[in-house]
């Protein structure tokens, strides 16, 4: 489902090149659950961005469900994401001018598919069936992340990327979010790639890749 080879990323910082990722290679089968862990500055988020096709690497290739993402144009990647990829962000990233329901509907509307029923169903599943018409500003952090989850799963994605989904939440709320994510993951059969610095969350994954200084220092399957 997901494969990367020789992935590397270098940025210009203060006029000097800064290598954030060096020669990352791995693959992940469909339905898998991968946690990417590492200390702050290890390149986790950069790697996630490359794997999801949000950025172009300095070197290497990425394949998602057999499609090579790295050579696609930005619009081609957008279409690919619309078809196959879900994303959950640390800062929720809901569109503030849309209600909870409308936020969940957006991915389906982009595909030209009926959206209202699916959005209502998903929001009910995440416990927000009575908050359909509330705006993000009217929701708590945990509620916003639940909406984000519902949005991510609306298109039945083949693969879901999550960047520190509980980073801005308290432990209890975060735990609820992870449970929901796993439940949806099991129900929809989605491959899950999650970046976290929380070892408890990482321990739920079937496979863990540890990064340090932009390199894979450990690639371990759960026992």
């Amino acid at each position: 489902m997901l494969r990367c080879e020789g992935l590397a990323q270098t940025y210009l910082s203060g006029g000097r090149p800064l290598t954030v990722l060096k020669d990352i290679t791995f693959s992940l089968e469909g339905g898998g659950f991968l946690a990417i862990v590492g200390p702050s500055g290890s390149g986790k988020t950069t790697l996630l961005g490359l794997l999801a096709g949000l950025d172009t690497p300095s070197a290497g290739e990425v394949w998602i469900d057999g499609d090579e993402v790295t050579t696609m144009t930005e619009d081609q990647r957008a279409r690919m994401r619309s078809a196959k990829v879900g994303f959950v962000f640390q800062s929720f990233q809901l569109i503030p001018t849309l209600t909870a329901r409308e936020n969940v509907q957006v991915p389906l509307e982009l595909r030209g598919e009926p959206s209202e029923a699916r959005a209502a169903e998903l929001l009910a599943r995440v416990g927000l069936g009575d908050r359909l018409d509330h705006y993000p500003a009217q929701l708590s952090g945990g509620e916003q992340q639940r909406v984000a989850l519902a949005r991510a799963f609306s298109i039945r994605p083949k693969i879901l990327f999550a960047d520190e989904p509980t980073g801005n939440l308290d432990a209890r709320t975060g735990s609820t979010i992870i449970e929901l994510m796993l439940e949806l993951n099991r129900a929809e059969g989605t491959t899950l790639v999650l970046v976290t610095h929380d070892s408890d969350i990482a321990s739920l994954a079937r496979r863990t890749i540890r990064l340090s200084d932009g390199q894979v220092v450990e690639d371990r399957a759960a026992a």
Partner: peptide, 16 residues
Amino acid sequence: LDSIAVLRVLGAGTGR
């Protein structure tokens, strides 16, 4: 800009 970036992640193309 943030909303636009999110919409791009969700699959909205440049033209739309």
